Simulated assay, not measured.
Amino acid sequence: MAIEWRGVMPAVTTKFTSDDQLDLKTFELNINAQLDAGVHGIVLGGTLGEASTLSNEEKSELTQTTVNIVNDNVPVLINIAAQTTKSAIAAAKKAEQDGAKGLMMLPPMRYKADGKETVAYFKAVADNTSLPIMVYNNPVDYGIEVTLNMFEELLSCDNIEAVKESTRDISNVTRIKNAFGDRLKIMTGVDTLALESLLMGADGWIAGLVCAFPKETVAIYELQKAGKIQEAIEIYRWFLPLLELDINSKLVQNIKLAEVATGIGTENVRAPRLPLIGEERSKVLQIIEEGLKNRPSLPNYKSL
């Protein structure tokens, strides 16, 4: 399956049982809710998926499980966030064996690679996999920016096809389009800039709050794509206080609380993360409750 870099692709949470095992039953419940809403792909093992806490065996199990659930209806991607080039190549090969259809890739972790090293890292993985690659460009959280000049070099690799644009600079969508046209597809990666990015030419949305609100997220994408901008804006304005839960250091706990509220998740997290308590928890719950109270009626967005 070739990947069409478009639409909404949830960066899904990883579900855990109360005794810290993978909760595949609840995970399947959530994936099916995403599919029912009409998402265009599934992204595993990102920040929201608590990737840094998962063993290689758990990542493999999640990939194989998701591939079986989606049954080729949408592509399954897995994130690679590795400390060495060798381990990144191994992860890419394992992902391909497990049935993933694409990779999301962060620059090297921990060591702050310079531009030359970062380009060499991405190219080495691209040269050792047939899977299409989406470069995750998030200098705010991960300290390394993949610049336009670096992308110019990276695009010599045919399977580097897309960028998850998370620089927080909305004008970067236009810069990428001006520089590369459709050669580099753009998936916006910041929930609170999603509609703005789509309207400026981004091809799709790697989303976070979609984990709890899949239909609303897909409706925004489909409405703006169909030119029904005002209808998309109205849903987006309702959604924004919830979307802001994603741009927070406790985004995993926040979004898992939202998944509980919409009936498609649990709030179990893996240590060192802990569930929210006290005033912090109350504030998040208040935002979620307010959103649910004013939840909009959606048009038949699948038929647009």
Rank of each mutant, 00 (worst) to 15 (best):
I80G: 01
I80S: 01
A81Y: 08
A81D: 04
A81V: 04
A82T: 01
T85P: 03
T85R: 06
K86S: 07
K86L: 07
S87V: 06
S87P: 00
A88V: 00
A88G: 10
A88D: 02
I89A: 06
I89F: 04
I89D: 07
A90K: 13
A90G: 00
A92Q: 11
K93A: 10
K93Q: 15
A95C: 04
E96H: 12
E96R: 12
Q97K: 14
Q97M: 07
Q97E: 15
A100L: 11
A100T: 10
K101M: 12
K101T: 09
G102P: 09
L103E: 07
M105L: 09
M105R: 07
L106S: 05
M109V: 06
M109R: 04
R110D: 02
Y111L: 11
K112V: 11
A113I: 04
G115Q: 14
G115H: 12
E117S: 13
T118S: 13
T118G: 05
V119S: 07
A120F: 03
F122R: 08
A124D: 11
V125A: 07
V125W: 05
N128E: 14
N128D: 13
N128Q: 12
T129V: 07
T129H: 05
M134Q: 11
M134T: 10
N137S: 09
N138Q: 04
N138S: 12
N138L: 09
P139V: 10
P139K: 09
V140S: 12
D141Q: 14
D141A: 15
D141H: 09
Y142P: 00
I144D: 04
I144Y: 07
E145W: 01
V146Q: 06
T147W: 08
M150K: 08
E152G: 01
E152N: 14
C157P: 04
C157V: 02
N159F: 05
E161N: 13
E161S: 09
E161Y: 03
V163C: 09
E165H: 08
E165D: 10
S166A: 15
S166T: 14
S166M: 11
T167P: 05
R168S: 10
D169Q: 13
D169R: 14
I170G: 02
V173N: 03
T174I: 14
R175F: 10
I176Y: 14
I176F: 15
K177E: 13
N178Q: 15
N178W: 05
N178P: 00
N178C: 03
A179M: 02
A179L: 01
D182W: 00
D182Q: 14
D182H: 12
R183I: 04
R183V: 05
K185W: 01
I186A: 06
V190N: 13
T192E: 12
T192D: 14
L195I: 03
E196K: 04
E196H: 07
S197C: 11
L198Y: 02
L199W: 00
M200S: 10
